[in-house]
């Protein structure tokens, strides 16, 4: 009990004094996850919209696969990426293993299916609603995609935030391809795992608090987005 209490105090002190180890870890985490979400959106928005409006044989299969990949276990994603990036793997010569870049790729692999699947769903619903109107204006298929994406913007941001939440909380993939190397590839989740097993609870707790706050912040952002979308009658 005593130990737990002092760990809490220590965690508070680390947070309030912007302890350099802690801030370094938080910033790397944000850098990795934000980059991954950015890549996920870059791929997921257009790809999801394409799946929503295009009709071609095999489309359903792709949709099912994308949806299934939403639940891809992070450790499995990490393992596959490890095999690709390891020295003897096909991408070995790039020497990306145990770098932040590898972690960004790993999280992008996790985020992209989420953003793609949510985009497809949202844009497909919107397309059904807009289809006849758009066709009457001479707006067909792929040419309608930018209009659809823009009108789906509130839901798309929500999707991106969901992806961010998943990536930020994930530990398996970044641990495998990042290696949790001090000052190089240590992010919040991997540090928490390591420090807890070592008995160094204060840093783990401090980072845990940051993660929880982040999650609260994301959910608050989603709620307020929803609120403003409703206020603007965009729902």
């Amino acid at each position: 009990m005593q130990e737990l209490q002092s760990a809490f105090w220590e965690a508070g002190r680390l947070l309030l004094t912007f302890d350099s180890d802690l801030t370094e870890i938080v910033f790397l985490s944000l850098r990795v996850t934000l980059s991954a979400v950015f890549i996920g959106c870059l791929i997921g928005f257009p790809f999801g919209a394409f799946l929503a409006v295009a009709r071609f044989p095999g489309r359903t299969v792709i949709v099912v696969i994308v949806n299934a990949f939403m639940g891809l276990p992070p450790v499995v994603a990490g393992l596959f990426l490890y095999l690709l990036l390891s020295r003897s793997g096909p991408l070995g010569p790039l020497a990306l293993l145990y770098t932040p870049t590898a972690m960004i790729i790993a999280q992008a692999v996790l985020v992209t299916p989420i953003v793609t699947a949510m985009t497809r769903q949202v844009v497909e619903d919107l397309y059904q609603e807009y289809d006849e109107q758009f066709r009457s204006m001479g707006l067909f298929g792929a040419r309608a995609v930018p209009s659809l994406l823009w009108d789906a913007r509130y839901s798309l941001i929500t999707g991106a935030l969901a992806g961010f939440g998943r990536a930020a909380a994930e530990v398996g993939a970044v641990l495998i391809v990042g290696g949790n190397i001090n000052h190089v590839t240590r992010v919040m989740t991997t540090t928490i795992a390591l420090e807890t097993s070592r008995g160094n609870l204060s840093l783990a707790l401090g980072l845990g608090l940051v993660l929880i706050s982040l999650s609260l912040l994301i959910n608050a952002a989603v709620m307020s987005l929803r609120g403003s979308a409703k206020r603007l009658a965009y729902v």
Partner: peptide, 14 residues
């Protein structure tokens, strides 16, 4: 298109 329609339930964009 030389023909325009105002649908029975027009769809306005968000």
């Amino acid at each position: 298109p030389p023909v325009s329609i105002v649908l029975q339930r027009p769809v306005l964009l968000r």
